[in-house]
Design a binder for these strands. Structure first.
Length: 573
RNA sequence: GACUUAGUAGCUCAGCUGGUAGAGCAACGCCCUUUUAAGGCGUGGGUCCAGGGUUCGAAUCCCUGCUGAGUCACCA
């Protein structure tokens, strides 16, 4: 890499690295560095009365420095937090040679460098538990300056907030913004709590195919790829439902999977093209049982995270204490619009939609219209956890018909803070009904609904062997994490949210520049002057180019001998 | 996909109705042995996102593009 592409601070750090090498210090040593404590342990365990912790070793990143002549303070950040260190010149360098302090620590180390430190713990005059350093080892030199974030009395100064940089360079975000780590630790607690509950119940955690020949189990546009050896298209899964039900057919009474699903659709605050769903299927249960199971699960998760069931989501305090309200979809619509749609036909529903100012088009069936009305008028009002039950049959091709009403299904969604969190059924296990429902979907698809489901004949065949009555539930883990951690963007609960790839400016190779007669050492200078391609260079005015590159030579003290004006003209000829 | 909005130093941001850039932190130099957003004095650092246009003159006005963010649409 040419120094012309580097910022002043990056050049200084690279120079420091060279200086370290000259002193015989390897800034990237290979050997294991054995630590005895984390920062948090020192803070917890140290007792000035006992005067314990008189020989501890820590490792971490330098996050701030306060140098005061012969003594210095710095903050070291490790996996568990930060601790202050105190470095005294004569304690670090007891002999005549003070290089390690004067040169290495004061001049050649920077914020961001990773160091190992050995010493004893004490409390400063101001009352800060600190490590008095006796030995310092460089473990890794940092060549890029970190964003500097300062904090006092809980107030943060110059926070690193640029969302683009935070998501593209999550590693920097994690170093500099400690609250980001917390979100991901909570995410892991959520998953762990759920997994423990399922394991205790004796359910089997399984893995099912991500590459599927038929993308089933949901209605969504899939990502498509190609398998070379088989020469067939394969789809990234949009759901794993049909595979988990095959396992119930196979004789497992309870299976679950934390699964990455992929949907080739729009991205926004609550949608990422790949996202995590937990789906669970339990034999011999129905959706009433599953509602109890779900509310118990969420109560446990909230307790594990917060020690209480009440959670702040934005402005709203949401209480995950079971049991949750249960409301049929028709009753929800009645409650929020005053209209009773029981038994209405297509024309009646269309009129209701018109009256409520809800846009519908001619392809909409009864089910889709009812869903629109609910989505427009009811969903947003469901702040406290509410089970919405008994969805129209058209919307739920994998769900068993309601025991009391064949136009409805035994389905529930759990609404929290105005959004869907869970989706669950008494599963459809009648193979004849299932095939008919798939065929209905085909008709929808022929009518232009590009999200209608594909027919999976192998799944129908599995049902023909007999699946026990089963209830299944799916829950969006990203969304659950958002609720439970108070984040309002899915990007804040994914380490690496999908971003448009960074665009590299087009740059022509050295060879192409050299072919024009430009000496190799001048190529970088020409690029730095703003002419990254031959085409751009050909447009240049020779006089300006000449001045620009000679100016850069002087400014950056490159020590090159300048070309003549005629040389430059010849390049452009 | 549509609309709105933003892109200025390593980071956070000023920069009004056009006159080619500023602050704090970070960096560099000097001083300082218990400081903590350490402090004091001094110095350097910018293709003002890119490309066009208007103008004597553009960070600033206009157009196009790129990349974010927000609303909406889509997401049963």
């Amino acid at each position: 890499m040419s120094t012309l592409e580097l910022s002043e601070q990056e050049i200084i750090r690279r120079n420091s690295l060279e200086e370290l090498n000259k002193l015989g210090i390897n800034a990237y040593p290979a050997a294991e560095y054995k630590t005895t404590h984390f920062s948090s342990e020192i803070k917890q365990e140290f007792d000035p009365e006992k005067n314990n912790l008189q020989e501890v070793t820590i490792a971490g990143r330098i996050m701030s420095r306060r140098i005061m002549g012969k003594a210095s303070f710095a903050e070291i950040q490790d996996a568990e937090g930060r601790i202050q260190i105190y470095i005294n010149r004569d304690d670090l360098c007891p002999g005549e040679d003070k290089t390690l302090y004067n040169t290495v620590f004061k001049k050649l180390l920077d914020i961001g460098d990773i160091v190992g430190l050995k010493g004893y713990v004490f409390v400063t005059k101001v009352g800060e538990t600190s490590l008095h350093v006796k030995e310092l080892t460089i473990l890794s030199k940092s060549l890029k300056p970190l964003p500097i974030v300062k904090e006092k009395d809980g107030k943060t100064y110059d926070a690193f907030t640029d969302s683009e940089l935070r998501y593209r360079q999550r590693y920097v975000d994690l170093i500099v913004n400690p609250q980001v780590k917390e979100v991901f630790e909570k995410r892991r607690t959520i998953i762990k709590t759920m997994r423990e509950m399922f394991d205790n119940a004796g359910y089997l955690e399984v893995e099912t195919p991500i590459l599927q020949p038929i993308p089933g189990g949901a209605a969504a546009r899939p990502f498509i790829t190609h398998h070379n050896a088989l020469d067939i298209p394969l789809y990234m899964r949009i759901a794993n439902e049909l595979y988990l039900k095959r396992l119930i057919v196979g004789g497992y009474d309870g299976v679950y999977e934390f699964a990455k699903d992929f949907r080739n659709e729009g991205m926004d605050r609550t949608h990422n093209p790949e996202f995590t769903v937990m789906e669970i299927y339990v034999a011999y249960k129905d959706y009433n049982w599953m509602m109890e199971f779900t509310e118990t699960m969420l109560e446990k998760v909230a307790m594990a995270l917060h020690g209480q069931t009440k959670v702040m989501i934005g402005e709203n305090e949401v209480d995950f204490k079971a049991p949750y309200r249960r409301l049929s979809m028709i009753d929800a619509i009645k409650e929020h619009t005053g209209i009773d749609i029981t038994g209405m036909d297509v024309a009646g529903l269309r009129k209701v939609c018109d009256d409520l100012n809800i846009e519908v088009d001619d392809t909409f069936g009864k089910g889709k219209m009812i869903d629109e009305i609910f989505g427009e008028k009811c969903e947003g009002h469901m702040i406290q956890p509410t089970f919405i039950t008994d969805y129209p049959v058209e919307m739920s091709p994998l769900c068993k018909k309601h025991r009391d009403n064949p136009e409805l299904t035994e389905r529930f969604e759990l609404m929290v803070n105005g959004k869907e969190l869970c989706n669950a059924y008494t599963e459809l296990n009648d193979p004849i009904d299932q095939l008919e429902r798939f065929q209905e979907q085909m008709k929808l698809s022929e009518n232009g609904d590009d999200e209608a489901m594909f027919i999976d004949m192998d799944f129908v065949r599995a049902l023909e062997y007999g699946m026990p009555p089963t209830s299944g539930m799916g829950i969006g883990i990203d969304r659950l994490t958002m609720f439970m951690t108070g984040q309002d963007s899915i990007q804040d609960v994914l380490f690496f949210p999908q971003m448009r790839p960074e665009k590299k400016a087009q740059v022509d190779s050295d060879e192409l520049f050299v072919e024009l007669g430009i000496a190799t050492e001048w190529v970088e200078v020409v690029r730095k002057a703003g002419y990254k391609t031959i085409a751009a260079l050909k447009e240049a005015k020779p006089g300006k180019l000449f001045q620009d590159i000679c100016g850069l030579n002087k400014k950056h003290k490159l020590g090159l001998s300048n070309p003549s004006q005629d040389d430059v003209k010849n390049w452009l000829a």
